[in-house]
């Protein structure tokens, strides 16, 4: 197992390098270097020439592209320095971590939500194939997959605005937006969290129900189920201990793409609902061409999903002895 973990972590390195290159490419993408943007007056009123020269040296802007890349990535890896946000006039570091925490929180809670909802429903649908309930969940599943996150967010906002007369955006009540962390603030957060969780989780829930159902239907007629029955075990025990347990494996490997989808969903849903996560920050940074901020956010979010994928692989190896033995 230790060897497997080690190998798996080693394999992550090329992924991370590629991810950082993509993020850097995005930083570089707007025409001209950002100092041009800075000097055009959009971002700041008066710009000190000395300051600009200092920055040019810091980011190696007059040097070849790979030197710039190295300066940027080594700053992040060795000093935790993500550069400067020009719009906010503060280090990127100070801006992102609070929001990043909320993104992680929302994505993780949504993940738990998806599992808690989809596994029992998947089991029910498979063991009661073609029942009324199975059809209801199938229809729900298809619609859940077809409706984009932001549309669901809009519809739910419209409904609550129209019929309950309240606006449901945000993660905190006005009183708590600026308040320091306290139990009351956490409670307020949780009270606001259910809506984004449902919105982000719908598509994932729908697809995991389908995966669980299909896997379980594959497993139920297998000989080991019959053998367990021949040993006098109860039907419930037979199902939970054997086929459900084995059908969970593909579900765990599905995590590898569910988690990135959640981070994506979080980004767009947060923009619509105006949540204080990374999504709206990235959106604004992209619009104002605040490229170090945008690039850093993309990098961090990508690293987050890569780590999520790693965790799902490790979980899978822990669940499936065959996989563990192979490596």
């Amino acid at each position: 197992m230790a060897i497997y973990i080690f190998k798996r972590i080693l394999l992550m390195i090329p992924t991370l390098i590629l991810v950082s290159m993509i993020a850097f490419a995005i930083i570089q993408a707007p025409p001209g270097d950002f100092l041009t943007t800075l000097m055009s007056g959009e971002a700041g009123e008066t710009v000190d020439v000395v300051q600009i020269e200092a920055m040019r040296a810091r980011y190696g802007l007059d040097q070849p592209i790979w030197v710039q890349y190295w300066k940027w990535i080594s700053g992040i890896v060795f000093h935790g320095d993500f550069g400067e946000s020009f719009e906010w006039k503060r280090p990127v570091n100070e801006l992102i971590w609070d929001r990043f925490g909320l993104t992680v929180l929302i994505s993780s809670i949504t993940l738990v939500f998806i599992w808690v909802v989809s596994i029992p429903i998947g089991i029910y649908s498979a063991t009661n194939k073609y029942s009324a309930g199975d059809y209801v969940f199938t229809v729900f599943g298809f619609i859940g997959l077809a409706i984009p996150n932001f549309l669901l967010a809009l519809v739910l906002m419209y409904i609550s605005f129209q019929y309950f007369g309240q606006s449901v955006g945000g993660l905190f009540s006005p009183a708590f937006v600026q308040a320091p962390w306290s139990f009351a603030r956490v409670g307020d957060l949780l009270a606001h969290l259910w809506l984004p969780v449902i919105i982000i989780g719908t598509a994932g829930t729908a697809s995991l129900i389908r995966i669980m159902r299909a896997n379980l239907l594959d497993e139920l007629p297998k000989p080991y189920v019959e053998a367990a029955r021949a040993r006098g075990l109860s039907e419930f025990r037979i199902r939970v201990k054997y086929p459900v347990r084995i059908a969970l494996n593909p579900l765990v490997s599905a995590l590898a793409w569910v988690f990135p989808a959640l981070v994506s969903g979080d980004a767009i849903t947060s923009i619509v609902l105006n949540l204080q996560t990374t999504g709206p920050l990235l959106y604004r940074a992209l619009q104002s061409q605040d490229m170090y901020l945008a690039g850093s956010l993309i990098l961090i979010l990508s690293v987050l999903t890569v780590i999520g994928t790693l965790l799902s692989d490790l979980l899978l190896a822990w669940l499936d002895p065959r996989l563990r033995a192979e490596v």
Binding site: K222, P223, Y224, E226, A227, A228, R229, A230, R231, G232, L233, S234, E235, K241, Y242, R245, I246, N249, L319, D320, P321, R322
Partner: peptide, 29 residues
Amino acid sequence: PRGKAMRGIRGNDIGMVFQEPMASLSPVH
């Protein structure tokens, strides 16, 4: 067929061995 009495007989009064030991044993237990 799925009652308690029947389950008390299966595996207790009557044991059964299947053809494919690999397929008849759960791969993850």
